[in-house]
Computed example of a mutant assay.
Amino acid sequence: MKYKIAYIILGILLIVGYVKTRENTIDKQTLKLLDEVRHMETNEIWEGFDIKKYPLDVNYGNLEYRYMDGDIIKKSPDLQVLALTAISTATGPVVKVLPESELRKITDMGGLSQSERDAIYKSILIHEAFHCYQIEKSGNGVQIENGVIVSADLDEYKIYAELLKRIDNDVKYHKLWNNEISGLKEYLESGDSKSWTESRKQKVDYEKKFFGSEYNVYKKWTDMKELLEGSARYVENKALTIMNQKKNEPSINYVKGDAKFYQSGCLKVQILNEIKGWKDLDFSGSISLDELLISK
């Protein structure tokens, strides 16, 4: 199964006001953070995940610099857009990132201390690098052009995107989704899955009625988003907890678009890893997080 593995902040691929500079190398602040994140023991966050394996390409608009094993190589950008993502190349997965100063503008880190801003930048790098790990574990290559996955599933993905827009405007669905999240939280806190299984059934029954014959398309892509982005968000949150030395508990509310599946998927992965002790996730998409939670 081919799929998109991308973390595009706030849906922007082209960043208004991004200055196409001609840096002679990676700027000092970004380089400092790249070096720090590559010295983190990411295997302690997720067994088998080693961020040092993956090159980090920092994009400055009309050129980029590849950072790997302390070496910096100047090169032309592989992508024609500015994005935070992981791509598959002939030599293996590569992380595509922005300089710290540009990412800070996008993510609006106002009111935070310098150490908190640094931790957020590094946690996002870890999120993206985990997608490289997923690519390796899935055995599927990913190619991205103009911010869009190039695959046989592209037309189907466009259908999914339209389905998502439709149900995002349904207020009743918001409530059903939030009920499932409450059930997942109860499952995580108590180990009792009853509330989740009941609320999940109500939500799924509504989806089937709402979409009819198109339900399977919606389910396929939401399952995929939860698996890939949910696990990457889980790793990101654990990294923040380690760096800030306090538990990272982001708010979870219904939001339009794909972002809600990062949240629900993260909770499901957390239950699998912390309650059920399940670490060997299959990132090929052959099994969903729900199936794992129900079966184990």
Rank of each mutant, 00 (worst) to 15 (best):
Q29N: 14
T30D: 07
T30Y: 05
L33D: 09
L33E: 03
L33Q: 07
L34N: 04
E36Q: 14
E36S: 12
V37L: 07
H39D: 10
H39Q: 13
H39K: 15
M40S: 05
E41I: 01
N43H: 01
E44Q: 08
I45H: 00
I45R: 03
I45P: 03
I45N: 03
W46S: 04
W46P: 05
W46H: 04
E47N: 08
E47M: 04
G48H: 13
F49C: 01
I51R: 08
K52N: 05
K52R: 15
K53S: 14
K53P: 06
Y54I: 09
P55T: 08
P55I: 05
P55N: 05
L56Y: 12
D57K: 10
V58T: 08
V58D: 09
Y60D: 04
G61C: 09
G61Y: 11
N62V: 13
N62W: 01
N62Y: 00
N62I: 13
L63Q: 15
L63F: 02
L63V: 03
Y65D: 06
R66K: 13
R66I: 12
Y67F: 14
D69H: 11
D69F: 11
G70V: 04
I72G: 00
I72M: 12
I73M: 12
K74R: 15
K75P: 00
K75Y: 01
S76T: 11
P77N: 09
P77V: 06
P77I: 09
P77Q: 06
D78A: 11
D78M: 13
L79G: 09
V81M: 09
V81G: 04
A83R: 02
A83D: 06
L84Q: 07
L84N: 11
T85I: 08
T85G: 00
I87M: 01
S88C: 06
T89P: 01
T89D: 09
A90T: 11
T91F: 12
G92N: 01
P93R: 05
P93F: 10
P93K: 12
V94N: 05
K96I: 15
L98V: 00
L98G: 02
P99L: 08
P99G: 03
E100M: 13
S101F: 10
E102P: 06
L103N: 07
L103F: 15
R104D: 15
I106T: 03
I106Y: 01
T107N: 03
T107K: 07
T107V: 15
D108F: 14
D108M: 13
M109C: 07
G110M: 07
G111F: 10
L112Y: 12
L112E: 05
L112D: 06
L112Q: 01
L112H: 02
Q114V: 14
Q114E: 15
S115A: 11
E116D: 12
E116S: 10
E116T: 09
R117V: 08
D118Y: 02
